[in-house]
């Protein structure tokens, strides 16, 4: 399990029940508006080659599609854990940079419109260690 971040990295993406009240465009969408456009102008991510004939509103499959999109796009991100939690989706992992974390949240919002996305995405720590582990 990824260690929960302790650096204030908790973030939300997409529209939760509260956000939906004040952000009409983020209200839940039907199957034809599942946010899986051929090319995302916002993210610059290429679409997956095969657009499904019947875009799904099923959260489980949309989570799977988000996983595929994170892996197949510019991010090449396979290290996020994306799971359904009640009415929301929880994303856990470590991003290399703040830019990557923003891109992950943006893709999640695109792929899961109308679903509250709660994210605990830590940033990779690139500092040197302060002590070794001696294996005696």
């Amino acid at each position: 399990m990824a260690t929960p971040p302790d650096d204030g990295t908790r973030a939300e993406a997409g529209a939760g029940p509260d956000a939906a009240d004040s952000a009409p465009d983020a209200a839940p969408t039907g199957p034809a508006q599942s946010g899986r456009s051929a090319q995302s102008a916002q993210s610059g991510q290429p679409a997956r080659p095969a657009q499904p004939a019947h875009p799904t509103s099923n959260t489980e499959y949309r989570i799977a599609h988000l996983g595929e999109r994170l892996a197949g796009g510019d991010l090449a991100e396979l290290g996020m854990r994306i799971e359904s939690r009640g009415d929301s989706v929880h994303i856990t992992g470590t991003a290399s940079t703040a830019h990557d974390r923003e891109a992950i949240l943006r893709l999640a919002a695109e792929e899961l419109p109308g679903i509250a996305v709660r994210a605990d995405i830590a940033l990779a720590d690139v500092t040197a260690p302060d002590h070794p582990e001696d294996l005696s």
Binding site: P129, P132, E133
Partner: peptide, 15 residues
């Protein structure tokens, strides 16, 4: 894996 060690690298001392 860097997300696991949460540093730029880990150091192990081998006798």
């Amino acid at each position: 894996a860097q997300p696991v060690i949460r540093r730029a690298f880990a150091v192990y001392g081998l006798p």
